[in-house]
Design a binder for these strands. Structure first.
Lengths: 341, 341
DNA sequence: ACCGGTATGGTTACCGGTAACCTTAACGGC
DNA sequence: GCCGTTAAGGTTACCGGTAACCATACCGGT
């Protein structure tokens, strides 16, 4: 039983089958000018011999690689898996292959990866921008040749399309929820170095004010470094005084979870004595001892939209897709306690 | 001020500079037969014009792409970010570009991605196997042409090299820790569908037995589906009886965290009345109200080793690198309480 | 003046596919 | 019998780089 040598190239295969490379090509590409019988025979042999074309060579000739590059800082970010899933799905639906490049928060690496992606000839790039903007120049440069879209975060000088979730609206939703529950002594604990935090706070505050409730300055802290935890001092300021809020809004679930814990440490019951709201809709936040009320985002859809925009080719300049977050009410919020002062 | 057209190909560039493509090539490749002056001039122009070669074309000619593909189920898995970081670093140290392909736990997608990676001509593949083995045939097939290494998990029929952490040793370390603390009423709560869980339990049990302590069958549960949480029934069985263990070992931090919570729900103090051990060294486990004692793994090193093995080309058949885990003692374990029975 | 060697650079073919174009045989119509 | 048409397939050039080989100028030595 002689083992047939595996054909490596389309030419090997053609020789093996006694036809020309073009005929093989017609069989695999669905192009006409080949008899159904011949096509069937060739496809069967390809299957049997487990041959696959060299995608790089095809891409070189066609000027198209059916490939989508995704550039992110780090896959640990809680919402990235779902965004990637969205991108993947939209890409595969159009027969594209999507892959992820990680830059670990280093601008030089991000730039290098962007250039590599372009050099590899990807048909589009989806970027989740987290760097201060050190890569924006490169990004704009690449944008001129390769469709590129940013997701989740608006970058000041980036000239390409963006897919965002309306963070101001998210803040408003949080405010409405607390207003309906009758709260009027309300605080905020956010990040000092994350633009998202500020936008969410702004929407939150606006909605409160429109309803005649003010966000108390003495209970409005934006002191935490993103990725860090609030200090005990911050928690004391919010929860330690005789005078304290009945509800606190945080622009992330992580922060909210810490506030809940800080409240517990100080003997405050959540939600009976204190309502706490998070943001993001992280899955783990539903599994906490006190499941968090939060504002959720359509993560998979962000990815899908981004992929679609990138692949639709209409380089119609800077467009911005704005998706809507929604409220997920769980156990960390409750009607405001009767004022006891 | 006329805007100079950007050269797209090496030929455009050569024409623009009044030299041949070969001279440009010599400048960028570091090959000899070019004067330092000419090289400097060309490199300067390349910089100025922001030209980069087409990597696909280069790869086609050289039969090498300086690219490494990583295939994983889902980037949400807690330890993947660090493994990816390790792979990335090792790859970049050798001027390779590493990227990640996600199959979302679907065998058909995994197979398709593996084939795509090979078709793209990657120089190596790092795979984190989570599927039941449906992709192993494809994997072995691809292995014949492209160096491939599996990480973290041993797959029965996979014929290529593997980088593993010694889970049995991890179990033994956990056992030793509890033995030193004087525990002899010990339980286990693990997964029923994860081989890792079983191996860790085995090592744990072996080390206990060698020291004359038995892992009580009535407190040894492997009932949880991986990814799920233990049922209240399971927790009751471990913690609810009058007769109960003084220490419990879990093969993951997630599980251990739930046990700690279950203990709190039942009025048991951790670690005074119950010691709980986790596994994985997840960062968040240090931030819990009771920081978890756990067995940590050299995650970045796993990635580095895998990348090195793949890139070192020595296709010396099935080799297996075994790395060692270590114990991280935190607050969830303490000396065994005085027996009160 | 001629030769060989070196320094520098150009030419050609090729990697593995595909687009554009060319070839052949069979058939039908008049 | 001749021509046009079509079905089915083959040939050639090309995508953008690079390996292998070729060409020229200039040098010192005899």
């Amino acid at each position: 039983m002689e083992q047939q040598a595996k054909p490596r190239t389309i030419e090997d295969l053609a020789t093996l089958l006694g036809v020309s490379t073009m005929t093989v090509h017609r069989a695999i590409s669905g192009k006409p000018d080949i008899s159904p019988k011949t096509r069937a025979r060739i496809l069967a042999e390809i299957e049997r011999l487990d041959w696959r074309p060299n995608i790089a060579a095809r891409g070189l000739r066609q000027g198209k690689t059916f490939t989508l590059g995704i550039l992110v800082s780090n896959v640990a970010a809680s919402f990235l898996p779902e965004i990637l899933q969205g991108v993947n799905q939209a890409a595969e639906a159009k027969n594209y292959h999507a892959f992820v490049s990680v830059h670990e928060h280093e601008a030089s690496r991000a730039i290098r990866h962007l250039q590599t992606l372009q050099s590899k000839g990807v048909d589009g790039i989806v970027h989740y921008p987290t760097l201060g903007g050190g890569e924006v120049a490169t990004l704009n440069d690449i944008l001129r040749n390769t469709p590129t879209v940013a997701v989740m975060r608006a970058v000041p000088d980036f000239e390409g399309p963006v897919v965002l979730v309306d963070d101001a609206l998210g803040g408003r939703l949080a405010a409405q929820h607390l207003l309906v529950l009758g709260h009027d002594r309300i605080g905020f604990l956010g990040y000092h170095d994350a633009d998202l935090s500020e936008v969410r706070r702004q929407g939150f505050e606006d909605a409160l004010r429109e309803n005649g409730v003010s966000l108390r300055p003495e209970w409005t802290l934006a002191t935490v470094a993103s990725g860090a935890s609030p200090s005990e001092r911050d928690l004391d300021r919010l929860l330690g005084g005789a005078e304290r809020p009945t509800a606190i809004f945080c622009p992330s679930d992580r922060l909210a979870a810490r506030v809940v814990q800080g409240a517990a440490d100080r003997g405050l019951r959540v939600p009976e004595e204190l309502s706490v709201m998070g943001y993001n809709g992280d899955a783990w936040a539903a599994l906490l001892p006190v499941p968090l009320t939060t504002v959720a985002q359509p993560r998979a859809e962000i990815g899908e939209r981004a992929a679609q925009m990138v692949l639709e080719e209409r380089t119609s300049g800077r467009s911005c897709t704005l998706l809507e977050p929604w409220l997920v009410a769980r156990a960390s919020t409750a009607p405001a306690p009767i004022a006891t002062r």
